[in-house]
Design a protein around this nucleic acid. Structure first.
Lengths: 136, 136
DNA sequence: TTGTACTGTAATATTAATAGTTACAGTATG
DNA sequence: CATACTGTAACTATTAATATTACAGTACAA
């Protein structure tokens, strides 16, 4: 993974944790994060697909957590947001005539997987609740 | 961290490990990785600054490892290449009037640091020598 | 039953990051 | 002193990330 989407998602979830049972509109979230509401809605869409938030359409609708902050972990956020390799592939076309080039991606893959496993284990220990408690 | 520079650096180092004591020119490295030689030289410059490779100018010059593959770890490569936060900051300007926005970056920072620590520990266990041995 | 306040999403534009290119000066060797 | 390298600057091209506009769909509430 690689972009600010993790930060945006954590920010959204923290605001929702803060709002408890209320339905929070995306405009409000966008205001705190200071980014475009459409981006927020896209991220909400992703979090929704991963079962972390629930959205309600229509007037007095909005967004809220799908479960308690105690039941949401940073590893869930990571998994929801991740799409690329943690450490990034080199160009996808190393020279196949080179003994190293032709098989390096395979070996990089397994290296990345192990490293990511370590990262995930660390994030599994951190709940949204713990994160939210830090705020004064 | 986030880009393909890690992969490029590992690729370079693996080729140098393969070449043992020889001085390997950047054109050759670029050929195997299948990227531009100037990019390779830039990465070599970075690896040199971090004490991982030695370069020799002039005719019959080139590049080689600064120490044995047993003494180079993936964590060294990670440190050499890393410049941004592992998981990426959200926009640097969350709303300072929001209780969450105004302090989220601080908390994200400590979260990232812990996660990165876990990642580094995993990479410290993997030497360039072990990585190179995997190639047939 | 209709205006309002939301979500959802497509299409497009803008900006930033990454990668590639050209060009050339510097250096050591043979 | 020609050659084969490195080192680096300046520029261009490409791709990815982010922002904007626009509007359809939905549910509540007056």
């Amino acid at each position: 993974m690689n972009n600010g989407r993790f930060a945006i998602s954590v920010h959204i979830l923290t605001l929702l944790a803060d709002a408890k049972e209320e339905w929070v509109p995306s405009e409000y979230l966008a205001g705190s994060i200071n980014i475009n509401p459409v981006l927020v809605r896209k991220e909400l869409g992703n979090l929704r697909e991963h079962g972390l938030v629930i959205s309600k359409e229509g007037k007095s609708g909005g967004n809220r957590l799908a479960r308690t902050p105690e039941q949401i972990f940073m590893s869930d956020v990571y998994k929801a947001v991740k799409q690329k390799d943690l450490l990034g592939k080199s160009i996808n076309a190393p020279n196949p005539q080179c003994d190293v080039g032709k098989e390096i991606n395979k070996h990089l893959d397994s290296l990345y997987n192990e490293a990511e496993q370590a990262l995930l284990q660390s994030l599994e220990r951190k709940s949204l609740s713990d994160f939210h408690k830090q705020f004064s």
